[in-house]
Design a protein around this nucleic acid. Structure first.
Length: 463
DNA sequence: TCTGGGGTCCTCATACCT
DNA sequence: TCTGAGGTATGAGGACCC
């Protein structure tokens, strides 16, 4: 999908169509998840600190991600892909590999092109959004083709032309070559794919190590026989929060770690898994990151066990100077065991008693939602926090709209729907009883409209 | 006012066992 | 009895991806 989150927001909000839209964390430490193509003109791109984006594009609309909406659209698209083949490998909410041969949907270049074109039409009809298609003989090449196809295009790499096409491209084009490897290669005088091939496998292994060297050399020769794998099991589950302000108080650090452990276990259970190794992650004031892990005797999904392990791990970490991020994860996943189910009932009770932290709410905003817990008595701020920029609301009289901004006891709402003309803006008190948080509407009138499962935090793809 | 969140995979060091 | 090799598990860190 092209600039997925931003495109979904534009489809959802008629007043933003053709405008610069930036979706991401809004707090002081937020980063851009996706920028619309209009915003990219100003130099805004994903992973850029939001403050920098605001300097480059002060008039863009800054919105907090609505993962429920994106997930719903994603499922519609994945459904279309599964009609083509049983072998669909999702990479993220907005990208997937499809083995067209396995689905007998295509058998040569011409039939593949036809299938790709039809798919793009269907995606547009069902979701209202544009998607780009890359067609090639391997996953690596299909991925490169889809990047070339963006936005709103289709690219097919004709078999036999791969090497010639890849040759002049930057090494950064190849999957697995990021800033560090790119630099490493550049220092060795290698900047293009062709130069990787010329350097030879031995030299690549010498530079990058066995595994990376061998696979990169193969990629440079356009060799990639990785199969499309549907249904990959997750190998770890983790949650983490970056705090708007570094935490110095050791007691507060301990409390946060306990809360993260609880959230992590809830996610673990949601996936019907248990895990054996507990991992604590601490990012300090200077951005240095430490991890500590402990492997238990057997897998668990007991919140108390994970909490205690995380607390033990924290004791071995020096947090003087302050921490900006804390995380708790579980790896070594196993399927549920009978004993686990017993412990579950108990812990569920105390999880509810402690906070009832149903996933969702404003937490996806990136830590901002958590900060408030500590500061009691800030009634106005608490009320403001219900109104997250870009999120849906409903008004007794004016109907469906979205939050344009809030603060100082006021919330500004634009009343429009995906199917209406650009709407009018009105301002209310944040405690106005006629205004309540609303649900996302389908982007296409009459489209699938139920949004059940919710999860606040997920990746932030830009495609 | 630099630098999110949720993952995967790899490497290297170390410990332990045979 | 000592030493080394090799396998496996564990722990920490880093690179990369969306």
């Amino acid at each position: 999908m092209d600039a997925f989150y931003a495109s979904a927001e534009q489809a959802s909000k008629p007043s933003l169509r053709g405008k610069a839209v930036v979706v991401g964390g809004i707090g002081p430490r937020g980063v851009v998840a996706t920028a619309s193509y209009e915003a990219r003109v100003f130099g805004v791109h994903s992973a850029m600190p939001i403050g920098q984006a605001r300097r480059l594009a002060p008039n863009a609309a800054y919105l907090v991600p609505r993962f429920r909406l994106y997930r719903e659209v994603s499922e519609q698209v994945m459904g279309l892909l599964r009609e083509l083949s049983p072998l669909v490998e999702p990479l993220s909410l907005d990208e997937a590999f499809v083995d067209l041969e396995a689905g007998e949907a295509a058998w040569d270049a011409a039939s593949a092109r036809l299938v790709g074109a039809r798919l793009r039409d269907e995606i547009k009809a069902v979701t209202g959004l544009t998607g780009s298609v890359g067609l090639a003989a391997s996953k690596m090449l299909a991925k490169i083709a889809s990047e070339e196809a963006k936005p709103d295009g289709l690219v097919l790499i004709v078999p036999g032309t791969e090497r010639a096409m890849l040759g002049p491209m930057s090494v950064r084009t190849l999957p697995g070559v990021g800033p560090a490897t790119g630099d490493h290669l550049r220092r060795a005088g290698i900047t293009t794919v062709e130069e990787i091939a010329e350097a030879g496998e031995d030299e690549l292994v010498r530079l990058l190590g066995k595994s990376h060297g061998v696979s990169l050399y193969a990629m440079a020769l356009a060799h990639d026989d990785r199969p499309v794998v549907a249904e990959r099991d997750a190998k770890s589950v983790s949650v983490e929060d970056t705090y708007d302000v570094d935490i110095h108080d050791r007691v507060r650090v301990r409390t946060e770690v306990q809360r993260l452990a609880e959230r992590c276990v809830q996610r673990l259970r949601g996936a019907e898994r248990s895990g054996r190794t507990v991992v604590l992650k601490v990012r300090r004031y200077d951005f240095s990151t430490l991890t500590r892990s402990e492997t238990l005797r057997g897998p668990t999904d007991d919140p108390a066990v994970v909490r205690e392990a995380a607390a033990r791990l924290l004791e071995s970490v020096d947090t003087t100077g302050g921490v900006r991020l804390l995380g708790v994860g579980v790896t070594g996943l196993a399927d549920y065991t009978q004993e686990d189910l017993f412990a579950q009932a108990q812990a569920e009770a105390d999880a509810h008693a402690s906070e009832g932290e149903h996933e969702g709410e404003a937490e996806g905003a990136g830590g901002a939602g958590d900060e408030g817990q500590a500061a009691a008595g800030e009634v106005v701020e608490a009320a403001d926090r219900r109104w997250v920029a870009g999120h849906d609301v409903r008004h007794e009289q004016f109907g469906h709209g979205w939050v344009q901004g809030s603060g100082l006891g006021r919330v500004t709402v634009r009343f429009e729907t995906p199917y209406s003309e650009p709407g009018r803006v009105r301002t209310f008190r944040t405690d106005d009883p006629a205004l309540v948080p609303g649900e996302p509407l389908p982007l296409v009138e009459g489209g699938a409209g139920r949004f059940a499962a919710r999860e606040p935090d997920a990746g932030s793809g830009v495609v």
